[in-house]
Design a binder for these strands. Structure first.
Lengths: 160, 160
DNA sequence: CTTCATTTTGTATATTTATACATTTTTGAT
DNA sequence: ATCAAAAATGTATAAATATACAAAATGAAG
């Protein structure tokens, strides 16, 4: 997965879990996680993620992901969760991975993967219940697993 | 109604209707409406109202009142709207006003009015279907009508 | 009506956030 | 591989926002 996407996921995580009250604070958290970035980039990411800052009893202000705004996002999330249920199996052969799915699920899941544009994956080809995944050179099997979990968190149950 | 409360209602209105993208912009709107205030006060009001700023396709950023945060507010609003339906009539006699309501509504409506603490009103006494409203000296009839509409916007239909 | 306490507001400023511009990185086509 | 175009990022700074502090307004109690 591209770094930008990965970073934005991490930002969303940080905002959903912790209570963050400034970009500088978030910046430190991100750097602790190994991301290299500046406040400017953070500001842009927050804009893209539609993160908002509202007053909070305890911390004065906190960043949140407003519900209304986020609706399409929520829907997308539950669609992905739904599709993850169609996942059956993952096997490797060299720089190829083969995902087996429930009948009919393969192409939908492949689309989800393609849209995330994970760095680790060069491309996918989907049939009815099988997805062929071509890995980038140098990518390990666990790299791929991690990247799939990032895209479809529910896979953690089946792959973790 | 106290000025602060009145102002904050107007702010909420402005945010709900128009698309406002900075405090300075909102400040101008408020001043056009006759409010006297500074950016500092606005900042405090927005904090109190839990207004948030999120990115917007068109304007870059706009202020919004996030749904989740606002739920109790929404409920309160629809309660007030519901009660406004019980309003029947308004008559004046000197510095007194008499509101007639549907049976049983008077005390609930009086509570709504009292809670808003309108400057124009010194006090209310409610029976079952009648509210006696004692006006502050110097308050005109249309002052009172405006203040009631501010408290219960739906009354505009019946009083406007 | 005073006095004291509390709340609200403005002024001035510190903090925070967004963005213009330049640079680097990535992408896509040849 | 090489170039041109597009996207992402950092630097520096402008713009926007929050708040410390002082002053004014409001409210409560004698």
């Amino acid at each position: 997965m591209k770094n930008r996407t990965k970073r934005q996921l991490a930002i969303k995580q940080a905002i959903l879990s912790g209570r963050i009250s400034s970009q500088d604070e978030l910046l430190r958290i991100m750097k602790d996680q190994g991301f290299e970035l500046t406040q400017a980039t953070l500001s842009r990411d927050l804009k893209i993620l539609k993160v908002a800052k509202v007053s909070d009893q305890v911390l004065g202000y906190v960043y949140v992901i407003p519900e209304g705004v986020n609706t399409e996002n929520q829907r997308e999330n539950s669609r992905i969760n739904f599709l993850a249920d169609g996942f059956r199996d993952l096997q490797f052969s060299g720089n190829l991975a083969v995902i087996k799915t429930m009948p009919g699920y393969a192409s939908s899941i492949a689309v989800v993967i393609d849209n995330a544009e994970p760095y680790e994956i060069i491309g996918t080809i989907a049939g009815d219940d099988t997805i062929l995944v071509i890995l980038r050179e140098g990518v390990t099997h666990s790299d791929l697993i991690n990247s799939l979990i990032l895209i479809m968190p529910k896979l953690e149950d089946k792959l973790g």
